[in-house]
């Protein structure tokens, strides 16, 4: 972390000298989740299943992406009662989703004291030009990205964690792989650029030059890079971890599978031991059917196209 902790973030210091809401504290929770699995859950029962299986956090939402895709219509922030019900049964962090640009939903989630807000393309966008100004919040944000420019724009707006978008609700990992490879490939290329080329990079990525310089210097994003969107099996998790993801989000992949508790546990083990095929064999054997998958070319709506 090279960015100073005394950031633009809405941090406050109390009479005991304790400062909350700092960049370091926001990014710090993401650092602690590395190597773990964050699971989508739609009720308290599923939240317990996720915690029992070793999830590092849960994402509270009303419908998993596969159902949002099936049902159509406008997808919004969850009912506060649903979020509170989940907060009351688990001891691990609870995240929740706000619509892109819908800062009032994010204010509600902050007041609910969720541990992370996901400004998510899985919900229907509320603003077609602006994302939320995330520096105005004490709660940390995670945002999706399909490429390095999008990731750096979200970080410049205050995101403390980036997740590659993939294509949520499909059980098809191909888009997650595309987005991870795009982001990490560009980081590798940027890291070998010279000082003049970085201005061209900043122009091409439509990203602030200071963030472009930081990525070039460190050969990594300034915040953790997690992977989401289409992970349905233990091997999918191992694939994206080997490609360079630092943790995984699993949405529909667990509770749309034949045996959610076993799938959840197996994906946790696969994420922790992602370089160990022996363990992948053990946790994958006899696991039953993964969620039904979808061919990306047949989709009516590509969620990854939302956000700019």
């Amino acid at each position: 972390m090279t960015t100073d902790a005394s950031s633009r973030a809405d941090s406050t210091t109390d009479e005991q000298g304790r400062t909350t809401g700092t960049l370091r504290v926001k990014r710090g929770l993401a650092e602690m989740l590395r190597g773990g699995v964050i699971m989508d859950v739609v009720n308290a029962h599923q939240a317990k299943v996720a915690e029992d299986a070793g999830a590092v956090a849960v994402m509270a939402l009303e419908r998993v992406p596969a159902d949002i895709r099936r049902d159509g219509g406008v997808a919004r922030m969850s009912d506060p009662a649903l979020v509170e019900g989940i907060q009351s049964v688990v001891t691990i962090p609870v995240m929740a989703k706000a619509r892109i640009g819908h800062f009032a939903e994010a204010q509600v989630l902050e007041a609910l004291r969720v541990d992370y807000v996901d400004e998510s393309e899985v919900l229907t966008p509320a603003d077609e030009e602006h994302h939320i100004d995330k520096w105005a919040f004490r709660v940390p944000f995670v945002c999706g990205a399909t490429n390095l420019g999008e990731a750096l724009r979200r970080i410049s707006e205050g995101a403390a964690m980036i997740r590659s978008k993939g294509e949520a609700g499909t059980g098809n990992v191909v888009e997650a792989v595309r987005h991870l490879r795009t982001i990490l490939g560009d980081i590798r290329a940027l890291a070998t650029s010279d000082s003049a080329e970085r201005y061209a990079w900043a122009k091409r990525l439509q990203a602030p030059i200071d963030l472009v310089e930081e990525v070039a210097r460190t050969a990594s994003l300034p915040v953790p890079l997690f992977c989401a969107g289409g992970i349905a099996t233990p091997s999918d998790a191992a694939l994206v971890m080997q490609l360079g993801a630092e943790a995984v989000f699993v949405g529909s992949g667990i509770f749309k599978s034949a045996d959610p508790p076993r799938f959840a546990r197996a994906i946790v083990e696969a994420t922790a031991h992602f370089r160990d095929p022996e363990i992948l064999v053990k946790v994958s054997r006899g696991l039953g059917d993964a969620m039904p998958g979808a061919e990306i070319s047949t989709l009516a709506t590509k969620l990854a196209d939302r956000g700019w």
């Binding site: 304790r18 400062t19 700092t22 370091r24 504290v25 710090g28 001891t91 962090p93 969720v114 992370y116």
Partner: peptide, 14 residues
């Protein structure tokens, strides 16, 4: 565990 509360209560201090 989580003695100070949720993430909003996470802090830095000397």
């Amino acid at each position: 565990r989580n003695a100070f509360g949720r993430q909003l209560d996470s802090f830095e201090a000397d």
